[in-house]
């Protein structure tokens, strides 16, 4: 049953997945495209690090997109068929969801491998100034974890009903409105920025999205 799920999810997302694999390979390679020029200009590490860092934002964006597409692909066809097919199967809901999750998570692997190979190729093809090092494996591992967090978050949201989604959006909207009203009234209670900040700092779920994503670093 898992093989069937994996096959169907792979089929549904094949074109998008191919594009994401290409992007995963291209980002590390493009991030060091200036390395050769920098090295020939006197091995200054600063400009190279700036160039690599400027591409760093592409990795979490790609991780988010991969997570979103994998999660939506996992549930779209069930939603379209009102879950009749899933309900007709002799499996518990939790087991069905788990199989869907694992099948979707498997789709993350090709993109992560592409990031890793791209990082290895970029690291070996460029002249890295002494004192700096390429970290393709660490980068790929972080990419996998970040993508899985994004995928799990979107998977949880997508698995719910429209009513659940409305509740989530309603709570977020209410928080924004309350924050605006408090600010307009001159009350200094920045709970919304604090809450968002907690999501992106340890031990928040999205901490891996922040910080530097450097293929080459000290």
């Amino acid at each position: 049953m898992f093989r069937q799920m994996l096959y169907t999810q792979l089929k549904w997302s094949l074109i998008a997945l191919a594009a994401l694999v290409v992007a995963g390979f291209a980002i590390p390679v493009l991030s060091v495209q200036q390395a050769g020029a920098v090295a020939s200009a006197g091995s200054n590490a600063g400009p190279l690090l700036v160039a690599v860092q400027s591409w760093g934002v592409a990795y979490p964006v790609l991780a988010g997109v991969v997570g979103l597409i994998a999660a939506l692909t996992a549930w779209t066809h069930d939603h379209r068929g009102n879950h009749v097919y899933a309900l007709s199967l002799p499996v518990a809901r939790w087991r069905y969801a788990l199989l869907r999750f694992v099948a979707g998570a498997s789709l993350v692997i090709p993109v992560a491998v592409a990031v890793w190979i791209g990082g290895l190729a970029a690291g070996s093809a460029s002249t890295i100034p002494s004192g700096l090092h390429a970290y393709p494996t660490a980068l790929a591992l972080r990419f996998v974890l970040t993508t899985l967090v994004a995928y799990a978050a979107f998977f949880a949201i997508a698995s719910g009903t429209s009513r659940t989604a409305a509740w989530v959006l309603g709570v977020i909207g209410a928080a924004v409105v309350i924050q605006v009203v408090l600010s307009a009234a001159g009350v200094h209670a920045p709970f919304l920025p604090d809450a968002v900040g907690r999501l992106y700092t340890w031990p928040g779920p999205f901490q891996l999205f922040t910080g530097r994503w450097m293929l080459i670093n000290v």
């Binding site: 939790w94 967090v149 799990a152 998977f155 698995s159 009903t161």
Partner: peptide, 15 residues
């Protein structure tokens, strides 16, 4: 967090 979010997905109210 992946485990927590997976648990939330598995306990969805849909079914």
């Amino acid at each position: 967090w992946v485990v927590v979010l997976l648990a939330l997905g598995m306990r969805s109210s849909r079914w």
